[in-house]
Design a protein around this nucleic acid. Structure first.
Lengths: 208, 208
DNA sequence: AAGGTATCTTTACGGCGCTTAGATATGAAA
DNA sequence: TTTCATATCTAAGCGCCGTAAAGATACCTT
């Protein structure tokens, strides 16, 4: 657990403690898992007193919110990259794979993201409006591949259905029960592909 | 928060403290939510000392496991009931609706169930073998409706895909973002139906 | 230079999971 | 029936946690 600066060199005023705390939290999350993510541990990791974070975050939940938000942004980027880099997949499948791979590669972060969402009973606020959010990307890709943009309810339903499938798979993929399936299919990636294949992700599959 | 027996009437040896603790935990869970579910609070609710639970559970996680297990059993029963009571739905849809309704009606319990699963990185142990588990019920229903039972991998994939969809919807349904969709569709139930309609749950939809 | 404000530290409170040691009841062996 | 090992419970305490209050320190404006 390294600190941003050597302990004795840091001035009394940190400079950007808020940033440093979020970074420290992500470092801890990666290294020790979600259960090790206490406010005090984050403060320790950042080299400040246990009370210091309260000048930048109302409480622990607000710190975790900041961490979660960064997670959503990274997820959006990775999905955007996956859509751009054509891998010979249907673009919706490519998005789904990118989503699930993000969850596999950042399990602790993914958990913090949805823990925060469940607590507030909502996904990040701008999700359905921010053009480069993961959610909007799915919806836009639906349109690009033939979904009727004027059938708003139906478009939203298709997006939700795809989102549900991706999130469901992201959680299931971590369970030992399905290891044998991955092996039989010749790898995790093939497993993801196959499960998505069993879901009706594509608007063209439905008579709209 | 009532106790099982009035405090002074309880004998030194409780009789069935293990049972009482699980019940107390479920009562607390229902009343105060998952965050209020501390071992000490459960012990208080059951009217015993904070250390008493350790004679029946190795640690807090083991208590929560017991609570979660009851959750999975109840879920299995409710899905079984839903399958038996024909509501004019495709039986797989009926199972999915029952799954999602369970999560809606027992959000805290549902959360404990999956928190435990994520911690152990596996769903309850016998899930894929116990004839009346929710999971096996889905798989069997797939077969009853035309899935090829000898195509084992494909059958498993279809079951996983349906499970992913149901779990995904169960989590999304609690988010405020989708309230307007429920309203536009004329209710929660219609929303569930519509989302499932956008997923390829039925084996007959795929060319196997 | 002075004073206000933002930032950080110190200290402290109650609650938590869990451990240890001791009290009490049960039930099997003598 | 007495004995005594065992199971079950309580009491006390450890280190951790989230958070609040009050004081110290540095920065910023005037």
């Amino acid at each position: 657990m390294s600190e941003a600066k050597s302990a004795e060199s840091r001035p009394y005023h940190h400079g950007d403690l808020r940033r440093a705390l979020v970074d420290a939290a992500r470092r801890l999350l990666e290294a020790e898992g979600p259960s090790a993510l206490s406010l005090r541990a984050v403060a320790r990791e950042a080299g400040v007193s246990p009370a210091a974070p309260y000048h930048h975050f109302k409480d622990k939940a607000e710190l975790l919110d900041a961490v979660a938000q960064e997670g959503w942004e990274i997820l959006g980027q990775q999905m955007s990259d996956a859509k751009a880099a054509d891998q010979g997949l249907h673009q919706l499948t490519a998005l789904g794979i990118a989503y699930v791979c993000f969850a596999r590669d950042n399990p602790a972060l993914y958990r913090v993201m949805y823990d925060a969402a469940r607590d507030k009973e909502m996904l990040p606020a701008g999700m359905q409006d921010n053009k480069d959010s993961a959610y909007c990307m799915v919806r836009d890709t639906m349109i690009e591949h033939g979904a009727d943009p004027t059938a708003e309810v139906d478009l939203e339903l298709a997006t939700v259905a795809a989102w549900c499938g991706a999130h469901g798979l992201a959680e299931m993929a971590g369970f030992k029960q399905f290891e044998h399936l991955k092996e039989q299919l010749g790898g995790e990636r093939a497993f993801f592909d196959a499960v998505f294949g069993h879901m009706g992700l594509f608007p063209s599959m439905h008579g709209h």
